[in-house]
Amino acid sequence: AEKTGIVNVSSSLNAREGASTSSKVIGSLSGNTKVTIVGEEGAFYKIEYKGSHGYVAKEYIKDIKDE
């Protein structure tokens, strides 16, 4: 099942092309942005936001229960 997560940073969080800190940054998400978690790979979540996919470090995403 898809989960919703909240970007848990004070400034912004980089979204990357792949599940690695050396992957190209494809965008950034500001704190408290809601994202859909579609998968996980190592220390990263694969997320969907406004129709695009990217990878973000798990430690900066807070899971919330689907309402």
Rank of each mutant, 00 (worst) to 15 (best):
G27F: 15
H53C: 10
V9Y: 06
G42P: 00
I26H: 02
A15C: 15
I64H: 05
V25N: 04
T36P: 01
E17R: 05
S20K: 06
V38E: 03
Y49L: 07
G31N: 15
I26A: 01
I64M: 07
V56I: 08
G42K: 04
A43E: 15
V7D: 01
A57W: 09
I6G: 02
K34E: 06
G54Q: 03
G39T: 01
R16E: 02
K24W: 03
A57C: 14
K62T: 14
L29Y: 02
K58C: 04
K65N: 10
N32W: 12
T33Q: 10
K62Y: 08
G31C: 14
I6P: 02
Y45S: 04
K24V: 07
V35S: 00
S23Y: 05
E48G: 01
T33Y: 05
E41Y: 09
K50Y: 10
K3Y: 10
E67C: 13
I47E: 04
S20C: 09
E40D: 06
I47L: 00
L13S: 03
K46F: 07
D66E: 12
S22E: 12
K34L: 11
G42N: 06
S23I: 03
G31E: 09
R16D: 02
Y45D: 05
I47Q: 02
A15L: 15
D63Q: 12
G39I: 02
V25A: 05
N32K: 08
S52W: 14
Y49R: 00
T21I: 14
A43F: 08
E2K: 15
N8P: 04
K58I: 06
V7L: 06
R16F: 15
G51K: 04
V35H: 00
S22K: 10
S12W: 11
E67L: 14
I37V: 04
G54C: 12
K50V: 05
F44Y: 11
K62E: 08
F44N: 02
S11M: 10
S10D: 11
I37F: 01
T33M: 09
S20V: 04
A43W: 06
S12G: 13
A19Q: 03
A15K: 03
I26V: 07
K46N: 02
S22G: 09
A57M: 12
S23R: 03
E59P: 01
A57R: 11
R16G: 03
G39E: 03
S28C: 14
V38F: 05
S11V: 13
T33L: 07
E2H: 15
I37H: 00
E40K: 03
H53D: 04
K50S: 07
L29V: 08
G39M: 03
V25K: 05
V35F: 03
N14I: 15
V35Q: 00
G39D: 06
G31P: 15
L13Y: 01
Y60V: 04
E17Q: 09
G31D: 11
Y60M: 08
R16K: 05
V9R: 07
D66M: 14
K24A: 09
S28K: 12
S11Y: 07
G51W: 03
S22H: 12
L29F: 05
N8A: 13
A43M: 10
I47G: 02
S22A: 11
E59G: 05
V38R: 03
K46Y: 10
K62P: 02
V56L: 05
Y55R: 00
I6Q: 05
E67S: 13
S11A: 10
E40N: 04
K46I: 15
D63S: 09
G51Y: 03
I64A: 07
T36M: 09
V35D: 00
R16N: 08
I64W: 08
S20N: 10
E67Y: 11
A19S: 06
Y49Q: 01
Y49E: 02
V38W: 05
S10I: 12
A19D: 02
E41N: 06
Y60D: 09
S23A: 11
K65T: 13
E17M: 08
H53I: 14
A19E: 02
Y55D: 00
I61H: 02
V35R: 00
K50I: 05
D66C: 14
V7H: 01
N32A: 08
K62S: 13
A19L: 06
N14G: 07
E48A: 09
Y60R: 04
D63Y: 10
G5C: 09
E2G: 14
S30V: 13
I26P: 01
E59A: 10
E48M: 12
N14D: 15
N14C: 15
Y55S: 00
F44T: 01
I47M: 01
Y60Q: 05
E41V: 10
G31Q: 11
K62M: 11
E40C: 09
N14V: 15
A57Q: 14
Y60C: 14
E59M: 11
I6F: 10
S28G: 05
K34P: 06
N8Q: 09
S12A: 09
E59S: 07
S11N: 12
G54E: 01
E2D: 09
K3V: 09
A1T: 13
T21Y: 14
G18N: 10
N14Q: 14
S11W: 06
S22C: 13
V56C: 04
L29A: 01
L13W: 01
G27A: 07
T21A: 13
V35G: 01
N14T: 11
A19Y: 03
A57V: 08
L13P: 07
T33H: 05
K50F: 11
G51R: 03
G54V: 13
T33K: 04
K46V: 10
T21E: 14
G54N: 01
I26E: 02
V38T: 06
G27Q: 04
K34T: 09
G27D: 02
V7S: 03
I6W: 11
G54Y: 12
E59R: 11
V56P: 00
S28L: 12
Y60A: 08
A19I: 08
